[in-house]
Design a protein around this nucleic acid. Structure first.
Lengths: 348, 348
DNA sequence: CTGAAAGCGCTTACAG
DNA sequence: CTGAAAGCGCTTACAG
């Protein structure tokens, strides 16, 4: 036998037609049990595998989902955000469990990703994952949807969005952190992170935090919010430096992400400011290293396993033209030592 | 225009044959510059994309690599080993840079993974990544190679292996840790991890460590080696408990992986044994959280970026039928506080 | 339950 | 430089 076996080879070997082979291998009830068995045996013997390119071409679906991990243009060779890495792992697992393959690709936000995978028929649908300026890629999302591409996005759930998205309840997460910090006696709680519609997830966290403070009768002080558009340690470090330069007193820091919190804690250490004794710190995401930090970081857990499953399941619904309900996933406050005072705080 | 445009639609629109369209879109020099320009414009206008299933079927290659992440059967819903997650990220990037797509899949070691991706023509070659009992999947590797599947494996480089593999110089890493611990004054250095040909990477680390101790005139004490076949925190925790039960004195722990080291450090903390004052600890991998541990963990850095690029480049060579040279990647000792004594150690 | 035939949308000799 | 034709290996009406 030269080259790989085809369905015709199985047909010759078993004395049936090629159509019957094709049916039998897909376990069609149209083929008798006995014939199916003989065909399966022959296939195994010849080491036959269905050519996916041929079957996908004919049947017009690929059994594959594409995951587009997009990043800000600034992203260099640095590691991928650990939170997205966790998501990637959970999405991979969810796909495998549902019999789908997963194609993974990095995308620069600037690149024409809306056109790729789905249009070239390599994937039946795409999952969008990443941080980036929402307003900058909004029109790409619109094109994507206009072209009928099945896609689902991890991120903020907004009233006017063109596409379907799944996200955590960032607002509630922001509330939970703020409530906790208030309970710890903090009154001047800084927010490190972008608080604008460019980064809606961070903005929701900010809004939950701000609403809680206001309900507690605290006047928001603009000097206590510092941008850190990128979710990186360096951005967190810089943001805290900026905060210190403003010379406004603060007794807690709520970082829009764990990575920002890690950078902020490093900056605090460099200034000999004790966490949590002088400043309480909280983050968001509960990335794996959060519990190993010194002190361990109080944060908001996003359930990446549930998130991955929900993304895949809803995308599959979209592909089958079934209705999908956009919903927010619950978050959970995880209190660790970085925010727990054993004694009254000395304000900075 | 109903449905997606095909190359025939472009042909009609531009008044050339479909073959010319196909050539032009692949930038064939056989087509005049002017004709190519017109065809590109028409393609853009009709939002045309080449159907990859059709082109792959015809040309018999897919422009796709498959990454098989395999795990021990014990792996449940727990997080993926952070080291492999880093590798995954770097492989994804390396593929993107070389214009290849990456298909990702989890595999149970028990499953018939040797048959999949490459045989179904979905991928031109496969990358194998993961821990598991080497002896248990050796015959699958043999089948894989016998069938002519292009594959490359991350792992130990052994003299008698059937396939091509890329790995770090685990032996040298083991030497580096042992040398460092000896310099710190440690003399009874326990090894936590499997030290058998079932897990050749761990075994190499063990052999480098053992050789170094013996050169220093230290007699190996079997009581100081504890299996931890799985590379998990729990396995590390259990291994250290076992070590303590043996009631043999030890002044250092060399864990076969960072995850094992983390578990061991947790067990030491639970027994109120101070790191590094009473017991120095070192790991292997330098996963992102290693530097955040308390105390930060001394370990051996495996350069995942280089590893990912080397894997992809060598697999691409295999696919082009070019010769590949199996080689070991260098490792780097990273000394942190978990192994640095400021004062003489109190042995346990 | 089975078979003969068409066709998915490309790429690639072959011919000019 | 361009075109007509074959064919990659399947799935799926259609007919029996």
């Amino acid at each position: 036998m030269k080259g790989k076996a085809t369905s015709f080879d199985i047909a010759h070997l078993t004395g049936v037609s090629q159509s019957t082979v094709s049916r039998a291998l897909r376990d069609s009830p149209l083929v008798s049990e006995e014939t199916r068995r003989r065909i399966r045996e022959a296939a195994e013997q010849l080491n036959y595998k269905v050519d996916k390119n041929a079957s996908n071409l004919r049947s017009q679906h690929s059994g594959t989902l594409a995951l587009l991990l997009f990043e800000d243009p600034t992203a260099d060779d640095s590691h991928i955000n650990p939170f997205f890495l966790s998501m990637l792992g959970s999405i991979t697992r969810a796909c495998a469990l549902r019999g789908y393959d997963l194609l993974i690709s990095f995308q620069q936000l600037s690149y024409d990703w809306h056109a790729d995978y789905a249009d070239t028929k390599k994937a039946d649908g795409i999952i969008l994952l990443g941080y980036g300026d929402y307003l900058a890629y909004l029109d790409k999302l619109q094109k994507l949807v206009a072209q009928g591409t099945r896609s689902i996005r991890w991120g903020a759930v907004l009233p006017d969005q063109p596409d379907v998205s799944i996200g955590c309840d960032n607002y509630q997460g922001g509330q939970a952190i703020a409530t906790h910090l208030l309970e710890q006696g903090c009154r001047r709680i800084a927010f490190l992170g972008d608080a604008s519609s460019h980064y809606p997830e961070f903005f929701e966290r900010y809004r939950g935090y701000a609403a809680t403070l206001q309900q507690a009768g605290i006047t928001m002080d603009p000097a206590l919010q510092v941008d850190a558009a990128e979710s990186t340690e360096q951005a967190g470090y810089n943001a805290l430096e900026t905060l210190l330069e403003r010379a406004e007193p603060f007794d807690a820091v709520f970082a829009a992400s764990d990575l920002i919190a890690i950078g902020a804690m490093r900056a605090l250490a460099d200034h000999n400011i004790k966490v949590p004794e002088q400043v309480a710190v909280a983050g968001f995401d509960d990335i794996p290293m959060a519990r190993f930090l010194n002190p361990p970081l109080t944060t908001v857990l996003q359930d990446t396993k549930l998130a991955g499953e929900t993304l895949v399941d809803n995308l599959l619904c979209l592909i089958r033209n079934e209705p999908v309900e956009t919903h927010l996933l619950p978050v959970k406050l995880v209190v660790r030592r970085s925010s727990q005072f054993s004694q009254p705080a000395d304000h900075v």
